[in-house]
Each structure stands twice: as structure tokens, then as C-alpha cells.
Design a binder for these strands. Sequence first.
DNA 1: TGCGCGCGCTTAGAATTCTAAACACATGAT
DNA 2: ATCATGTGTTTAGAATTCTAAGCGCGCGCA
Lengths: 198, 198
Amino acid sequence: MMTANVTDRMDVGGKLKAARRSKGLSQRDLALRAGLTNGAISLIEQNKTSPSVASLKRLLDAVSMTLSEFFSEIEETNGPKFFYGADEFIELSPQEIGLSEGASRVSLRQVGNASLHALQMLHETYPPGADTGPGMLVHESEEAGIVISGAIEVTVGDHVKVLNPNDGYLFDSRLPHRFRNLGDTPCVVVSACTPPSF
Amino acid sequence: MMTANVTDRMDVGGKLKAARRSKGLSQRDLALRAGLTNGAISLIEQNKTSPSVASLKRLLDAVSMTLSEFFSEIEETNGPKFFYGADEFIELSPQEIGLSEGASRVSLRQVGNASLHALQMLHETYPPGADTGPGMLVHESEEAGIVISGAIEVTVGDHVKVLNPNDGYLFDSRLPHRFRNLGDTPCVVVSACTPPSF
DNA sequence: TGCGCGCGCTTAGAATTCTAAACACATGAT
DNA sequence: ATCATGTGTTTAGAATTCTAAGCGCGCGCA
């Protein structure tokens, strides 16, 4: 039952109900037209299930509405999103960030849809031995972070330092930089970047 | 496995694949970001399953696209729809058409999304005893039909006639009219109406 | 009041989507 | 060549959506 959470805020069900009502149809009427059952519509309207695109399309056809219309309304109705549950973070794939192939697995979990914002915030986990690689990172941003647990060696230009919990960093990302976990416990860092670098 | 048919023409899968490719992601990359599995994405991209709205939303978030954007593109790409399978007809509910309460169940199956067109075409089935009711129908249209099987009594203004297979009718719908199946076999009629009356 | 009818809700089970694991194929390195 | 790695596909089974049937409630009418 985790699927519904994602769409909870969207309230697909409520919107569908409104559309149905505006046509003066009961759940059974709509069910008949769309070729579903009243029970299914009840569940969808209560956001107890997230309909398949196929089912939603049939429902919207029956009330003469297109999918893009439907979601435009939903996305207008929804104000901007401010809060994100831990399970909503987007897990970025290391290679896309420009990490060298064999580099140990770094977990980068991003808050929200960074490409819609000026600020990118990440929850990073460096397992023991993790390394962003000898090919130093370079991008047009400014970035900062704070170590939460474990320890990590940070290289910026020709400066190198090992940061421990509650230590932080802040630099211009155009300077070549690198992160390495030399210890034997995972290191967790929370970082921010502006503008988003990937 | 009937669900996919509806969305076949939409090619949700193909569109998703394009979006993923444009970000230079593999199915596995996207799966990691969106919190699904590569297998699921493979099936969706081949249109072998129709994703839930919740799943599609997660996928689109991961490629920084909104649902309305996604479906706008789809609906633009899709030319107008010309052909409709028998199972795609929209079943209209009698009461909405203005049929009296107790009137026997008439099945009205509409071709396509009439509210987007000037012409409304119906496949109508009148079971034995079916009657659009003594409260005569009136609307601002012109309508015509042909009897396919069975027989039906049609009243238009003060004219009454029983039509048999291959007989037809054509009149201004502002004249009060009524249909009754007096026989003991179902009567099937194919009718057209312009502009659509409901 | 009591009955019938339509409404939305609930629930067990059927059908579909999604997961986890394996497969087939290609490409590049040793 | 052979292996390792990356890609998309397939498949049995878990999880979720959807169906079919029934429930409870409210409203209108006898």
C-alpha cells in the first residue's frame, strides 16, 4: 500500500469525483459508460487505489475530458510542493554525475525535482572506500555540506581535509573537487548545490 | 489483458522510452530513481502493461516531467481518432437521456467522444417491451436511423409507424418523438444525430 | 411507520501490475 | 577467444487494482 502515498497529494480521486458530479452521473452511471465497476470508482475516488492509465483514460473519455486537461487542472490546483517524505527522495545514479566507472557506490538522494528549482539538496551516503574518483568533479555551481556521521576526506583544488561529524564545507564547484571515505564506516553528508549540477 | 488495448494507440510506453532516452538513462537507472524495477519499465515501454498513475508519476518525476506535459505531448502526437472497436463504445445511461424512470432498459452505445464532434452515432438495442416513455423526447437536433434487426414502433409528432429491418427514419428532433419495441425480440437500431443531443 | 429504490462503501476473489531473478545479446577489455 | 559488464527482455510469484456481490444509509412515497 505504498503506491497511493505518491498520489495522495494530487488527489486524483477528488478530481475524478468532481468531473463525474459535474456531469450529474452516479458512480454506477460512470461505471457503465467507462466499462469499469462502481466499486472500482469508489476506491479510486477515495484514493484507496491509484488507477492504471488505461482505466483513468476510459473514465475520462466517459466524461469527455482528456488526460492532459485532467492533469493540468490537478497540477494547477496543487500549489507548489514544499515537503518530501524520506521515501520520496530521488536516487541519482552515480555514473550520471560523472563518477568514474569502478568508483564504489555512492548513494545520492535528492530532495524534490531539482530541475524545477535553483537549489539542489542531497542526502549522500559514502560506504567505506567510496570515492568520487581521481577524475575531479567540476561544474558551474556553488556547493556546501555538513557531515552527519562517519568521516570523509574532501579535496578542493590543492586543499585536502578530513571532515568529521558536524564539520562542513563551502566552495565554488568550478574548483576541481573530490570526496573519499577512507574509514571503515559509512559516511553520511547532507549537501546543497546552486544551481543544480545534474 | 484488455486494458492495454485502450492505451495502445496512445503509446504511453513509447513516449516514456523517449523521455528516458533523452535523459541518457538506462531502464535500470530510471528504475533506481523512480523506485520501480527495470522489468516493470521494460513491460511499460513495450505497452505490455498500463502503469498506475502513481507509478507513472514517479517515473516522470525522475525525468523531470509533469503528467500534463507528458499527456499533452501524447495527445498532440496522436492525430484525431477515426476508428473505434466495438468494445470502445461508450454506454450511455438511459436516465441521462431523459428516459422516464420505469422505462425498460434501452442500451445506447455511442461511437467516440460525441462532445468533441458535430455528429453523434449510436448503436441502440431495445429489449422486448422497451419504451423511451410517454414523456416524448425533444431536443435541438436532426436525427436518423436504420433498423438492423427486430422491429420498433416510432412516433414522431402525430405520425406512428412500425419499422422492420432495413427500414429507416429521418426527422427534426424538435418534434416530440418516441420509440417502443412492441415485439418479443430485441430490436437493434443504428442512429445518428446532429448536433449531439446528450 | 414501513417499504422500495438509489446512493456510496466494503469485501473476497479474479485479473493485472510490479518485483526479483534469470536469460539473451552486444560491446569492450584482457 | 574469453570473460566481464551493460543493455533490454522474460517469468514466477508478490502486491495491487478491479470485479461482483452485498451492506448500510437516506430519501420519497404509500
